[in-house]
Design a protein around this nucleic acid. Sequence first.
DNA 1: ATGAAAGCGCTAACAT
DNA 2: ATGTTAGCGCTTTCAT
Lengths: 346, 346
Amino acid sequence: MATIKDVAKLAKVAPSTVSRVIANNPRISDRTKERVREAMKNLGYHPNFIARSLANQSTQAIGIVLPSSADKAFQNPFFPEVIRGISKAAHQKQYALYMSTGETEEEIYEGVVHMVEGKRVDGIVLLYSSVNDKLTHFLRKKEFPFVIVGKPFKDVNEITHVDNDNYRASKEVTEHLIEIGHEQIAFIGGDLNLVVTIDRLLGYEKAVRNAGLPYKDEYIVHEEFLKEGGQEAVKELFGLNEPPTALVVADDLMAVGVLKMLFKMGIRVPEDVSVVSFNNIMMAELSQPPLTTVDINIFQLGCESARSIIQTIEHPMEPARRIIIPHKVIKRQSCKAKDTAELKEA
Amino acid sequence: MATIKDVAKLAKVAPSTVSRVIANNPRISDRTKERVREAMKNLGYHPNFIARSLANQSTQAIGIVLPSSADKAFQNPFFPEVIRGISKAAHQKQYALYMSTGETEEEIYEGVVHMVEGKRVDGIVLLYSSVNDKLTHFLRKKEFPFVIVGKPFKDVNEITHVDNDNYRASKEVTEHLIEIGHEQIAFIGGDLNLVVTIDRLLGYEKAVRNAGLPYKDEYIVHEEFLKEGGQEAVKELFGLNEPPTALVVADDLMAVGVLKMLFKMGIRVPEDVSVVSFNNIMMAELSQPPLTTVDINIFQLGCESARSIIQTIEHPMEPARRIIIPHKVIKRQSCKAKDTAELKEA
DNA sequence: ATGAAAGCGCTAACAT
DNA sequence: ATGTTAGCGCTTTCAT
């Protein structure tokens, strides 16, 4: 395999000159550049990235960290979609993607430590944000470039992150339910350790309180984000004396689970209960009935996070930024205005 | 950042000794090992992976190549799911994953060339197999370790690959339709450049011919694998004089598109037409009606491909292997026996 | 059992 | 505009 020295020899220049040609250094004459390029072509030379990384202290790679239940999480179409966004932006800037995975939180942590200490990547994108995250502490302590997709649990102003305004989104969607006449609105959330769950819960709460509706503990249920998760939640809620007439579900995938469960229990959507959720993954459109959901622009979330981390890598001294990706409520057939007559009855 | 030299100094040994301790070389006395490990801990030393790679000529990383329309393809849950499998197996063997992406086929090709020539990865997993693939040629010429998820277009015995028996799966599922009385069976396939499409088409054809049913060109339609694709196909088929009573669709995602289109056209599934497809992604279960489909064990496809590439990396001289992952027909509500009375009429 | 020293292939001062 | 040279941090002969 040809090295820079072989090229140098063939082109009758010093290795450093070849290196400069690779970097397209302007201080090399066009004639030499030509000669060197010719030599490279003849030898089928390609720079060795590893060697360059070592000399450079840079890898042109960014690490992607999925939440600790990596295997399960990947099932949520949210992740592929963010990665697709990251991928696109990274490629534009000639960065490659590096993923280390693990089953447990501890494994993930170890993986990241290896990425960072082993200098396998120049920066990291965290695809989740959880309360008191060990990883965040580690990265900050190391002063290693990273961005979070989501909102940091603390030090919001010191950590660059790309997020939606989940609080407001949740408030809006809950207000929508209220506007169409609902008063018994329950919230089915995911893992309470995730900041996104908290934000969506708070937005819901705000809307409920603003409207002067009672905020009841029995109406707040938490389950894992996954499909199966939603099912237990439903049973609990509809065992109540005063079951809800509308549901705010923290995630489309969960909402699909909820829908399934409701169907089994003979509760009709939207006739008996209205459902709204978040993310607008493809399934939200295909479900029966199609879900009213908040489109959070997952792809863009990914793009911006990649652009951000690259920016941070290339200009480490710039202050932390926060990027808010706009959201949009997509109305489909899972909601129905509460009958006013019935309302009066109650 | 601590280097091997710092550790050596602190432990009062030579750098080479430290290196041997890292590799757990048996010829180092336990006492020295202890001392060195102590020093490492005190300095918070972590080996630099890049440096090691350079000295070693190995990266402990495997490259993943998605099909050329990377951005779109990622939308098909097939890919996240294989990657999840790869991820799992790779992690067990301490390999990391590396993805290079691009929008066009050319970009992808360039990306792979960079991975390979730049020695960023030790081996590659191709997540698709297309007819006359440039990449396959390149990797074979370079004698670079790679495995294909799917069946190679040619030199099947010389290229290690992990695949389903798509021919047989397609034959089985078509036979199922025949058994329940269907005679007008159409095939809606994806990109004909993909070997998987070809295999599934051939299996379908075989079943049709075996049963003595006519194999009509008008019953064979090809579209992109994606959701939107299916819709055009449907219009064509149901414009025919003798429209099909059953459809074999090459992919769940497409089948969902087909279902949607049929619904719009007022054609009922399974009453008017039965539908079967392949992959058994989550959506297949959620669609309306739930799809009868072939479960191809995507996750396992991923696991095995990772194990395979690692095996090839570590034992380059071993002959090429072929691994066939079992499939299973999952019967749901998208199929219905053809009414015999009606059959007689025809 | 351990050390010395030469590389791995490239970059980046510093010279000229 | 180009050459010289010393690393980047690690592994690996070859000595001892």
